[in-house]
Design a binder for these strands. Sequence first.
DNA 1: ATCCGATCGTTGACTTGTCACCTACATCCT
DNA 2: AGGATGTAGGTGACAAGTCAACGATCGGAT
Lengths: 155, 155
Amino acid sequence: MKETPRWLTPAERDGWRGLTRMWERLSGRVARHLQSESSLSTAEYTVLVHLTDAPDGRRRTADLVGSLEWEKSRMSHQVSRMMKRGLVVREECPQDGRGAVVVITPAGRDAIAAAAPRHVEAVRRLFVDPLTPEQLRAFARIANRVLEQLDERPM
Amino acid sequence: MKETPRWLTPAERDGWRGLTRMWERLSGRVARHLQSESSLSTAEYTVLVHLTDAPDGRRRTADLVGSLEWEKSRMSHQVSRMMKRGLVVREECPQDGRGAVVVITPAGRDAIAAAAPRHVEAVRRLFVDPLTPEQLRAFARIANRVLEQLDERPM
DNA sequence: ATCCGATCGTTGACTTGTCACCTACATCCT
DNA sequence: AGGATGTAGGTGACAAGTCAACGATCGGAT
């Protein structure tokens, strides 16, 4: 005998559906834009950004996994694909025999340099600029609150 | 000779990264929860919900495509997979010789009935409840604004 | 009636992400 | 040292989505 569930109110439902719809459409658009303008997938772009964040363009795989919050197998597959496309190379890690280091190639640098301005432009056009500064701040607070909750809840 | 791009300010960057992080982690959690508690994927759940919205549990494929804003090929693949699992069946459409109608099966009804309360519970725990009602309203407005913009912008 | 463009839906090839599992190395403890 | 335990990373099978192309049908204009 179960209690009757607390269904979502219309306002709550609007919030949740707003999130899913917004994300599905927005991320699709941004991804397509990036792909057609710069021949990079969102995942490739993200990895390259994190590599260029390091001064020498090299990072431990586990480090990338940590900051992107990806599954490690996802990262491994992704890096393999990016190696095939010549955007990065894998090197052994001197300090840790298990480890691997991902290094951006010159081609990778060219790709990200060409892609970044257009990508930022798209993010701006479709997400940042339509919102007021207060909305943007409110949004960031909301996201942080939800992320906090995800961390707290074991599940 | 290109102009120097308008990079994102830290606040803007927080907003955008907040969105991507929140979505990646939240949707992953909710999906895993749904899968482990109810053996349904998010996509299956969504389709079943839209089918049960219709009183007789049947809907034109194009109709589903329209309300979910999916690619039609995605819907076609999805329905095929769901047929294999016995959640839905496909029928011919009497009015339109090209058309197909997707119909929920009793097993599909059982699955969604069992899944819905727990799924709603998870959405509530991880997204709705942590936010204040004002935040939720603000969020819905933000999402609508972004969706509007997506419609207006040709690209 | 027929022709033509638009719509409906499916398919196959390809890309991406997940899961379960495996190996190799590191670390800690006695 | 030796053995348990944990961590880094890769692999293969699979689920899911995208894209381009296709066949079939509909509907309006001629």
